[in-house]
Amino acid sequence: MASVDSDIPTTERGLPQALKILVAGGFGAGKTTLVGSVSEITPLSTEEIMTEASLGVDDLKGVEAKTTTTVALDFGRITINPELVLYLFGTPGQQRFWFMWDELATGTLGVVVLADTRRLDTCFSAVDFFERRGIPFVVAVNRFEGAADYTRDEVREALDVGSDVPIVPADARQRDSGKEVLLTLVEHVIRRRSPISTG
């Protein structure tokens, strides 16, 4: 980032601010690959320890009834300018991590939902989640060799998303393709925010 060693900010206003975009989708859909292909750093991995209420609380009669789950997150970084840094987080797609999604989704600029053409259904829960919360998302259709070749309309119908949600073909391994997906998302966010687009 922008700072040099001799240049310590005296207030937090001197620090860059961060934004985040999430990459969601089923296991093996290419989330980590996409993050890596556009990130300026090798994707990093970190863990968050989440506490969740476990089942059978009643049986335990006041005995500690929380369990902890460790959720691994992959992320990459794109420095936009000296004041702005964009982070991309690959989010665990399984339904049992919804409690994690809530925290991740807070304050997010938007979401790339990676649809895996071998198993389109693995992104249903992600689409559902972000649609319900009114968080802007695009669907990137990641083609795998030998998988069915769906048209945009077929994907739209299968996922049951509105006509305003962009659906873009993607190859998560290619930087240019990843860039295109991100640009489509940010343009979608801009369109949703400008009043002229609602009509």
Partner: peptide
């Protein structure tokens, strides 16, 4: 340590920020 909170992207539509993000991604 000084800490700076994230940009409140979800609530605050700032077109200049979004434009900067577009430019930043294009430059990759």
């Amino acid at each position: 340590v000084l800490a700076r909170a994230p940009l409140p992207a979800a609530e605050n539509p700032q077109l200049n920020v979004l434009q900067a993000v577009l430019d930043g991604i294009r430059r990759l």
